[in-house]
Amino acid sequence: MNPLSPDSPYPLSSAAAPSPRGDADRAPDDASLLRMMALGDEQAMGALYDRWHSLVHAIVLRMIRQRDAVEDVVEETFWQAWRQAGRYETARGSVQTWLLTMARSRALDRMRAMKRLREEPIEGEQGEVVVQQVADGDPGMDAEAAERRTFVLAALAELPEEQRAALELGYFGGLSQSEIAERTGLPLGTIKTRMRLAMQKLRGRLQVLREEVQ
């Protein structure tokens, strides 16, 4: 429609695109990056990657140990973000949660595929508790993220040990309830009850944790 200016500036292909709200010197927020990605701006994906790869890497690494597989899953996570950028809705949560939930799903897919192929047995992390992963003074997290993390860790710490273990083996271990029962030698009904109670309690505790939308 405008053949006279083939070089007409379309800022979506430039990472330094001015924001319509006039804060041009600030880096675009996550939601803006996703909107730019939805319109095909790969530099926006680069920026999103630079911002979030360490965290995506962390969750994948938590579930999968094989280095090549970790690399693949990180890539597939950002690729999915690229393909689905236009479907992200701010009202439904932060970009961080959106991204990490996808990362976890992709890691689960990979774990299950590996299990089917018997390439590599699932590395059991029996009894490994999230709380053990606390590290001090992490420079990679802003204060708000650190606060949210502390809050969730505290909620997990309030769970009875056996409930927390069941939850962890399911959520980060990628095991189904019957696999957990098999592995722990406990009756399936016991595992089901523990998981259900753990989720009920967490739901109540984490409800106050409103998703901050940038």
Partner: peptide
Amino acid sequence: AKLTYVVEPVP
């Protein structure tokens, strides 16, 4: 989804 908050960045 909020359980993902417990993860810390690993470069």
